[in-house]
Each structure stands twice: as C-alpha cells, then as structure tokens.
Design a protein around this nucleic acid. Structure first.
Lengths: 240, 240
DNA sequence: CGTGACCTTGAGTAGCCTCAAGAACTGTGG
DNA sequence: CCACAGTTCTTGAGGCTACTCAAGGTCACG
C-alpha cells in the first residue's frame, strides 16, 4: 500500500458525520439520547472568529460540519506557523488531551459550523460503546498519520511538489464536503499556505504562476481551476 | 505556557512505565490480573531487527522499556525518511489504529526491550477503567503534539537550530531513561539524523563541527559531550 | 475614487545540497 | 596483534533552490 496515507490520496469514500454511525447500537436508551444530543448540537463561527486559543483549558472537542478553519501556533519571535486547515469531518482539539490545554489557536477562514462535544461526555459514552471507542481512536490515529505525512512533505519535498500536493489535498477536501471539484476555492491567503507548507508567500505565488504557465492550472486570485490533474499528480510525486 | 510542548523542553517529571499507574484501582481482580499480565510481558529486540513493518496488520502496541528504536517510511523513489527515534516510555504503533495496518517500519538501533500489548485487550480494559482510558488518550495526544512540534521545526527552523534542538531532545531522553546526562550517546547514524531533521548527513556533520569549534560541544563519533548547554539552547531558539 | 490588504514579479543573495576525496572507525580473518 | 575491507564521518568546492528585499499591480471596501 504505497502512499495510501498520502495527503493527496484519491477520495476513498465520502466521509459522513463520523461519530454516530453504528455507535448507537451498543448503547441503552438513555445513552442514545445523550449521544443524539451531542450529534445535534451546533455552533456557528463567523469568519475571523476564534474557536479556542493556545492555553485554553480543554472542555470541548469540535467536529467540523461546514466551512474552513485554520490552526496555528505563535512562535516566540512573534511569527505565526499554520499547523493545519480543517474542513468537514475533521475533529479539532485532540492535541489538548494530554496536557488538558489546547496547544494551538483555531480561527475560521470562512463562516463555519461545528459540532461541539464535551470531552468528558465522549469519555463516558465510549466506556459503553466499543464502536464509539474505536471511532474515537481512529480519529486520533488519523491525526497522527496526517501529521506524519506533513513531516514527510516538509522533510523531503521541493517547493513545487509541496504546492502540488497541497492543491490535490484541497481538491479532495472540497469533494469530501460534497462540493464540485472545480473551481477550487482557497479560503486562505498565500501567506497562510506558505506558512503551512514551510515556504514563503512569494514561493507559493511563483509555483502557482509556473503551474499556470505550464497549462496545469488556472489562477484567479483564490479561485483556481485544475486543468490537468494527471500533470499535477506528476508534479506532486517527484522531479520530472 | 510558551513552548512547553517543545522537543527540548526541560525534563518535567521522570516518566514511569505509563499504563499501570492507578489504572488497576478501577478494575476487578480478574481484570487486574489481565492488566498485570500485560505489564509483565517483555520482548527483546536485537540491534538491526525489526519490530513491525509498514503494511503489517495491527495486533500489538509496544511500550519501549529500554534501548532505542527508529521508525521510518520508504518513499516511492526508494529513499527512506526517518519519522522518529523512540526511547523509554514511548508507545509504538499508534499510527495503525485507523487503518488497522502499520504505516511505518520500526527497527532497533541498539538492543532494546519492549512491552508488547494486544490492542484488543487494551480496548477491553479501557472500557472498565476511566484512568486507563485517559492514559491511553494522553499517549495518543502526546504523539500528535510531538508530530506537530516536528512540523514547526521542519517548517520554520534553520539547520543549526534543528540540530541544536535535536541534541537537547536526545539529552532529555537520556535523562528520562535514568542515564547520566553526559556523555550523550547517539545510537543513530548522521544519515538517520539528517533524514529525521530534513537535512543531509553532511549538513548535520557540519553543524556538529561548528558547535564543537564554538566550544559548545565535544564530538567523538557518536559520543558527544555538551559543554555549554545555555549556548546550545540559544542556538536552538533563534538567530543570535 | 482613495486606501489598505493581498498578490505578482524581479534581482540579488544566503543557506543548504550535490559531488567528491580522504580520514576514522568497525569488524573480520590471518 | 595486524592487515584489510566496508562503512561511516568529515571537509571542501561549486551550484541551485528558495529566501529577502523591493516595486508595482489588483482587489475589496468605504
């Protein structure tokens, strides 16, 4: 299974709201009601608003239902490093389980809807549902795998490869969210993308321009169109 | 709490064998026996031997009790990328929970002793022990935090800063393992270090030499002595 | 229509990589 | 104990990638 955990893997199956599938079957009626209450809760986050900040006590975990958020940490020199972009299906706050405090800031890049879930309640319910327990472990494990894929990328890929992988990942997310594959709408600035990919904003911009010149991409500000996906995959996977 | 999750954080408290503390209190006698059986099991791994490979089905998780192991993935072009070095207290295999298959190879860099634990049994026991459940979540979360710290490092630090942080991390691990802080013994090649840090082996070697010239370090092959730890911390934390 | 944020593009440079040669260490067999 | 081969490490020279600095263009919004 070479590279099946890749950032730009083909969409395997559209991810549904993750927690509730099958987990209810293990629970008694009163627990099912608790679970359903979790599943039904919603919180709207306006563009630019924060969901939690580094240092905040962990109370809630959040499943993203719609919209885009970014997580970032402030470095001691005042600069900011983007740790991730999050869309439908992602679970936020898992980095806080160990210390009890969040390790990063989370901000909405566009209007977003999340499902907040008290970690304590999730813990309780897991003890009665092996399915829920396993789904939770999977979410944590997936986050580890994602972070390791980023390590691979940052540790050994060139700028163009990183940018190409990023675009394929964004396209996959847009599909996962049930939207059309094209045009691809980026909700983050070149600066954010650069920070995420370990590059400067100028380098990201130049990669976009180069891809456009090669006929792989059409760039209109944050609105992109992937014209030649196979070529983009080739760009992502090595020197050509 | 700026940077408390850093790779080179000061030793907070010496980490004991993690799983068993307090968890037993929640369990009945027969479960305590199961837990104890887990805690007591041991497996020796000779230098150069593999613990598991990418693609292997997940059966066991392993807690490292002694020695050093590395995890790595093979990239499509045949090259290898080192994902981590693991010493006493680390839990191995967590990246496999999602897919049910390991995503990396694990090899002992020196004779090592691990405690193998069937994931299935761990799951069972967690359902009866909130303490055990929480400890397991902490281990997963810690892995996420560690991976994110690597992302920060690979995304925004220069070669010297990476190498300095690496040395401080190795020193902390050696202390955690109950060994003397000095001399620092590296069990991995320059090549492995470079791969881990997103650098070439030559760059690592040059950084070592430069630190030695500046009187910060004494280098004898894989045996190092940190002569000026404050200076090393300064090197790790920015240009100056 | 003006202002500020964001993006693109160019020129020059620094840092790290590549390639290469030689030294030091490790282990083996005589 | 020594000679030898293989591996690992160090050091140097040169080149390329991505960064820095800078200027101008575009877009969103009042």
């Amino acid at each position: 299974m070479p590279h099946s955990a890749d950032l730009a893997a083909q969409p395997d199956q559209p991810r549904p709201a993750w927690l509730w599938l099958g987990a209810a079957a293990d629970l008694n009626v009163s627990q099912q009601i608790r679970l359903q209450a979790l599943a039904d809760s919603r919180r709207q986050v306006e563009r630019g608003r924060s969901l939690f900040c580094a240092g905040d006590h962990l109370v809630w975990l959040y499943e993203v239902h719609a919209g885009t958020l970014k997580t970032s940490v402030s470095l001691p020199d005042g600069r900011e490093q983007v740790m991730g972009f999050h869309t439908r299906g992602d679970l936020l706050g898992l980095d806080a389980l160990d210390s009890g405090r969040h390790t990063c800031d989370t901000v909405a890049l566009e209007a977003a809807e999340v499902c907040p879930m008290p970690y304590a309640v999730l813990n309780d319910l897991q003890r009665d549902s092996a399915t829920l327990q396993h789904l939770f472990h999977c979410a944590l494990s997936r986050e580890i795998v994602r972070a390791q894929a980023m390590m691979r990328m940052l540790g050994s890929l060139r700028a163009d490869e990183r940018v190409a992988l990023f675009l394929l990942d964004m396209q996959r997310r847009q599909l996962d969210a049930g939207l059309a594959a094209s045009p691809l709408h980026l909700h983050m600035s070149r600066d954010d993308i650069g920070s995420y990919l370990g590059l400067t904003l100028e380098t990201v911009s130049r990669s976009f321009s180069r891809f456009a010149h090669e006929g792989v991409l059409e760039v209109h500000n944050r609105q992109l169109r992937i014209l030649d996906e196979p070529a983009l995959r080739r760009l992502a996977h090595g020197p050509g």
